[in-house]
Design a protein around this nucleic acid. Structure first.
Lengths: 109, 109
DNA sequence: TAGTTTAATCGTAAAGCTACGATAAACGAT
DNA sequence: ATCGTTTATCGTAGCTTTACGATTAAACTA
């Protein structure tokens, strides 16, 4: 087949965006990273790799995905890179999720 | 490399399960299906394919994924199959999400 | 300048995801 | 029994994801 990627134009922007954010959460390592950033209550410079059971290159890939989707930010601090939660992305996720939750829960739970 | 799949045993069960549920939401068609099931306020037999811009086989695959992860149920009703939201799965998702949200939001938003 | 540390990127292998047509299976109806 | 409807499954193409080692790039340090 020619078409093997998601036909994003055929769904609503909210559906597409929430799916994108959900995909970023669709790996335990990325959830663990978000939790680390949240519980340390500050930007983390370099300690992330040490706390995950994955190779440095793999962690870097996960960080890139979280950054690309807008859930975290990373800024250079000397030879290290400091990663923080990105409030805008987190808020967007919460809003989109809450909207879906409201729809789904209303008739379910 | 030999290991190319997620090392699930290296993360907490909650992280692994939430990632699994998030993956089920990581496609706009599956979000659209959940919304359809919620807003129609009843089980839907057969109308799902008609409302999505995807082939019948593709929709069936998406339904299977949602069923496997526990977010919907399907039961046979004559020649058709009726799909409903699965309250247990929805509740589980809400709980796991809420826990993450609480952690992440507390220090962020 | 040379060396060290830190993180990104490259290259690659294995597996997964998405899509569709074709086919099969299950059921009711004639 | 045969036909039509509905849905699942099979087979397959192509792209994506995950993982890692190796390398590169950037910045500080001596």
């Amino acid at each position: 087949m020619i078409m093997t990627r998601t036909k994003t134009e055929l769904f609503t922007p909210d559906e597409t965006r929430l799916a994108e954010l959900a995909k970023a959460l669709a790996h335990p390592a990325r959830i663990a990273i978000l939790k680390m950033l949240a519980t340390k209550n500050s930007c983390i410079c370099g300690e992330i790799v040490d706390e995950l059971p994955l190779a440095q290159a793999t962690v870097s890939q996960h960080l890139k995905e979280l950054k690309n989707v807008g859930l975290i930010k990373g800024e250079i601090d000397g030879p290290k890179v400091c990663y923080c939660l990105n409030e805008d992305g987190i808020k967007e996720l919460r809003l989109l999720w809450t909207a879906l939750e409201a729809t789904v829960m209303a008739k379910c739970c």
